Amino acid sequence: MRSAMAKHILVKTKAEAEVLKERLANGEPFARLARRFSMCPSRKRDGDLGEIYPGQLVRPIEQVIFKKALLQVHGPIKTQFGYHLVVVYFRN
C-alpha cells in the first residue's frame, strides 16, 4: 500500500503562512517554526504527521503529499482547518 511521511505547519491565515514560508526559505528550521507557530497537535513532534496512507487526511493536503515534489515546502494550502505548509520527506 502506498504511504508517505510528511510534516506541516498549520496557521489561521494565509498571511501567517506566507511569512513562515519566507522564514523557511531564509533558512529557519522547520521544526522550530512548527513548534512555535503551528495550531496542530503535531507541533509537539516538530510538525511531523508520521506515516500517512491515502484517505487519512483532507483532500487538498493528500494531493500535495502524494503528488508534489519531495523535500520542498508546499503551500499555503487552504483547508477548513486553516492554512498549511507541507514538506513531504518520504514516499513509496
Rank of each mutant, 00 (worst) to 15 (best):
V64N: 02
V87N: 05
D48K: 08
A31Q: 12
I61F: 04
P29C: 09
S38D: 10
D48I: 02
G75T: 08
E62N: 06
F37L: 03
L70F: 08
E18Y: 11
G47E: 00
A4T: 06
G27P: 00
I65Y: 07
L57I: 12
V88W: 01
L85V: 03
R45E: 12
V86N: 01
E28P: 07
I9P: 00
L24N: 06
L20V: 00
L33M: 14
V88H: 00
H8C: 14
F90H: 10
L20Y: 03
D48Q: 04
P54K: 09
T13V: 11
R91T: 08
R91K: 08
G50F: 05
E18A: 10
S38M: 12
A4S: 08
F30D: 04
G47P: 01
R43I: 01
M5W: 09
D46Q: 06
S38F: 13
K44L: 13
A17L: 07
R91I: 08
G27W: 03
E18R: 12
A34V: 14
V88M: 03
E28K: 10
E62H: 03
A69M: 09
D48N: 15
T13S: 15
E16S: 12
Q80R: 14
P54L: 10
E62D: 03
S42T: 13
K44R: 15
D46H: 10
K12A: 15
F90C: 02
Y83S: 05
G47Q: 01
P76Y: 11
L85N: 01
Y83T: 02
E22R: 14
G50T: 00
V87C: 10
A69S: 15
R35D: 02
Y53A: 14
G47T: 03
G47R: 04
S42D: 07
L10Y: 04
H74L: 14
V64E: 00
H8I: 13
H74E: 10
N92T: 14
R45Y: 14
S38Q: 05
R35P: 12
A15G: 02
A25F: 08
E51N: 01
L10S: 04
Q56C: 12
G27Y: 04
L71M: 11
A6F: 09
R43N: 09
E22M: 05
K14Q: 14
K68S: 15
G82N: 01
A31P: 02
A17K: 02
A69C: 02
R23A: 11
A6G: 07
P41C: 09
L70H: 07
S38R: 15
M5N: 07
E62I: 05
N92C: 07
Q80T: 03
Q56H: 09
R35V: 11
V64S: 05
K78E: 15
N92V: 07
V88S: 09
K12H: 08
I52R: 01
M5Y: 13
A34Y: 07
K12Q: 11
M1W: 15
K12D: 10
N92D: 06
I65W: 01
G82K: 10
R59C: 00
K7F: 12
H74Y: 11
S42A: 10
L57Y: 13
T79K: 03
R59Y: 13
L10M: 05
L71D: 10
T13K: 00
E62R: 10
G82W: 01
D48A: 11
E62K: 12
R32P: 00
I9Y: 07
L49N: 02
N92Q: 07
H74M: 11
V73G: 03
F30T: 04
R43M: 12
R36K: 13
P76T: 12
